[in-house]
């Protein structure tokens, strides 16, 4: 089921149309507000093979701004921020799809249009030799890495837009 469009936040925001890796699109609203990563915590989620959320821990729910009920059953791309290039997610899906571990820095979008940065690790859940889903665990990234990756993603986005 494709994601429904985001509700426009009360604070000033910009409107974007994002395209997910499965080709579906969604209108999102983005503010400039960054939410600090919660100290000492891990943000944990699990998805099925199609990237649909099956589990979200309390930190995931709290930081996303959604309720657990709003998250479970939705595509993981509900967190997709328009500043994230498609190539980053293609790399993620290609890597875990091949049964390998993926690491990356991700700017996530909250329900209210604000964002938070994470250092994410995704692993395939292999049971009886078969991949049955994926687990993603996020940790607090360093400020230096956030700045470094912001610049990289800007470049990748510019390339993607020029090719569109």
């Amino acid at each position: 089921m494709p994601l429904s469009d985001m509700q426009k936040p009360d604070e000033p925001s910009t409107e974007h149309r994002v395209t997910h890796h499965d080709g579906t699109t969604r209108t999102v609203y983005v503010t400039q507000r960054e939410i600090a990563y919660p100290e000492g915590r891990l943000i944990i989620s699990r998805t099925d093979l199609d990237g649909v959320l099956t589990h979200a821990n309390d930190a995931f729910v709290e930081l996303s701004g959604y309720t657990r009920e709003e998250l479970i059953g939705q595509p993981h791309a509900i967190l997709r921020h328009p500043d994230m290039p498609k190539a980053a997610f293609k790399d993620l899906w290609d890597t875990v799809g091949a049964g390998k571990k993926w690491h990356g820095y991700v700017k996530n979008l909250r329900k209210d249009g604000a964002h938070y940065w994470v250092y994410a690790t995704a692993v395939p859940n292999i049971r009886g030799g078969k991949t049955v889903g994926y687990t993603s665990v996020r940790r607090k990234p360093s400020r230096r890495k956030i700045e470094e990756l912001s610049a990289v993603y800007k470049e990748w986005l510019a390339v993607e837009r020029s090719q569109a």
């Binding site: 699990r46 571990k101 690491h103 692993v123 687990t135």
Partner: peptide
């Protein structure tokens, strides 16, 4: 078994 596997997957993400 699945509870254990879930935690092991989680630990796996923390190894590097």
């Amino acid at each position: 078994e699945e509870d254990a596997e879930f935690m092991i997957d989680l630990m796996d993400t923390l190894l590097d």
